[in-house]
Design a protein around this nucleic acid. Structure first.
Length: 454
RNA sequence: GUGGGUUUAGCUCAGUUGGUUAGAGCGUCGGAUUGUGGUCCCGAAGGUCGUGGGUUCGAUCCCCAUACCCCACCCCA
């Protein structure tokens, strides 16, 4: 035997059971997106590296999968880079394309390229795989699907609220208990400003983000290590350990941030979003969480994250507002807000909680089993009628022992089997067997169709 | 990029303080039952014990190297 085949690290095959489950997730998400007026687009798996590089920070550049140029790529490579084994320099010469790292940047590129044809505000959704070259671990893959939904070209906070409604509706349909965490970049900026460490905003928020994981003392230690002054850390304490309802929190923050114009704006945005969500009857719990600090590189307003309540898995949906989405591609003045559903993690959550509808894998409703050539020919005609009636059905394609044909139907989880022998053909009927109860009845094709359809 | 763990049948895993033919459950195939699946009963097939070296009379087991997968950190969905 040749060496066993395998697939690249961090990638997966999806067998029929898994596809049935994944499609259930995708279909649920898609139908909610459409309900809110979003339209689907797709972009290529590969983008020019010039589109991708520099958009995700240094860390992100390292995690990009690069595609080797076709042909004799070393012919045009910089000789000194080659000589000195300078991978970074050499890379520019031998690779000009890469696999997409997320769906937001390709979307921004798409908007810029199609600006003239788009009706603004443009509401798009996109469900495609993305690739990251980091080391796989639990709930983390090198190829995974994102389900992005974004509005570009509108600064209205209603967009934020509609995204919250979408989250609410998707998880209600999937029957997953979640909590939506809400924060605002402007509040974080205000905090940094007020404690006199405006330049340290990223360090501060990254440290605060770990509060749940490493505890207050360690957070403070990390802050000190990053060069935040003791006085600033002291000022930060009431904000880090903020408690109470969202309204109480906002009231407290508003006072603390009174001197920061940006901070106050952030507080107002949060209030507006929370109030509107309440008026519109969003059932999912929304928690104002100042320690939420994802995607700070580009978010400028609201920041969202959704966590499953009953499973320890990290965030299953995330997103936020990014002003100037298309600025890096030369078109300024377009604000966007969007979220991304992590399909692979939702899949893991549904698996752990076993929340799939029962009938997901029943592709075939009926299998015809036959005893010989004559019966087979007769069954083919019956099969045609059954399919015409819209019932997914099949026939065992070979004349083998009936036992084997039954085992096939059973193995596929088929609910009904039609047994066709000499007597059935003679009477123009079939023996319909209910595979769950084991009950058998002699019926005509019309009766069979009526029985399975109901 | 840093650190840890694993690797024995198709799958999930036992096991030998280094000693003849390496086991179980599940799955697969066959039979019981020549018009009936699943359940029950009987039987069978299937492993160079991840790979390459070393120690030893002898290695699946001990040592070294390597690969792969997994887990944690960083970061992120």
């Amino acid at each position: 035997m040749a060496t066993k085949p395998s697939i690249p690290k961090g990638t997966r095959d999806f067998a029929p059971v898994e596809m049935a489950r994944r499609n259930y997730i995708f279909d649920t998400i898609k139908s909610v997106f459409r309900l809110y007026g979003f339209q689907q687009i797709e972009t290529p798996a590969m983008e020019n590296l010039s589109t991708l590089m520099g958009k995700y920070g240094d860390e992100g550049d390292k995690l990009l999968f690069k595609i080797l140029n076709s042909g004799d790529y070393l012919l045009h490579a910089n000789p000194s880079a080659l000589e000195n084994r300078d991978s970074v320099k050499l890379m520019h010469d031998i690779s000009e394309k890469g696999l997409r790292y997320d769906l937001t940047v390709p979307f921004a590129r798409f908007v810029v390229m199609n600006k003239e044809n788009l009706v603004l505000p443009f509401k798009r959704f996109q469900i495609q795989p993305v690739w990251r070259a980091d080391r796989p671990q639990k709930g983390r893959y090198r190829e995974f699907y994102q389900c992005d939904v974004d509005v570009v070209g509108s600064e209205s906070l209603l967009n934020e609220v509609e995204l919250i409604q979408i989250v609410d509706e998707v998880y209600r349909r999937l029957k997953i208990n979640v909590v939506i965490k809400l924060n605002n970049r402007k509040i974080l900026s205000g905090i940094a400003e007020v404690i006199g460490a405006a330049d340290k905003i990223v360090d501060i928020t990254v440290a605060i983000d770990k509060l749940d994981k490493i505890g207050l003392d360690n957070v403070n230690a990390e802050l000190a290590e990053k060069g935040v002054s003791a006085a600033a850390i002291e000022k930060l304490q009431p904000i880090i350990s903020l408690k109470g309802t969202n309204k109480e929190k906002l009231a407290t923050i508003k006072e603390v941030l009174a001197t920061s114009e940006t901070g106050v704006k952030g507080v107002e945005e949060c209030s507006t979003i929370l109030n509107l969500a309440e008026q519109l009857g969003v059932a999912t719990e929304i928690e104002l969480d100042l320690t939420l600090a994802r995607g700070l590189n580009y978010y400028t307003g609201a920041i969202f994250e959704v966590k499953a309540k009953d499973v320890e898995i990290g965030s299953i949906t995330g997103g936020g507002r990014y002003d100037n989405l298309t600025g890096v591609f030369g078109v300024s003045g377009l604000s966007g807000v969007g979220i991304s559903f992590g399909a692979d993690r939702i899949y893991d959550v549904l698996n752990q909680l076993n929340l799939y509808p029962e009938e997901l894998l029943q592709s075939t409703q009926l299998v015809f089993t036959t005893f010989g050539e004559n019966e087979f020919a007769y069954a083919l005609q019956c099969l045609k009628q059954v399919r015409a009636a819209g019932i997914p059905a099949e026939i065992y394609p070979e004349c083998v022992k009936i036992k084997k044909q039954m085992a096939y139907a059973n193995g596929k989880g088929t609910p009904y089997v039609a047994i066709v022998g000499e007597t059935e053909v003679a009477e123009k009927k079939v023996m319909l067997k209910d595979m769950v109860s084991g009950e058998q009845t002699l019926v005509s094709i019309d009766e069979l169709i009526a029985k399975i359809k109901k």
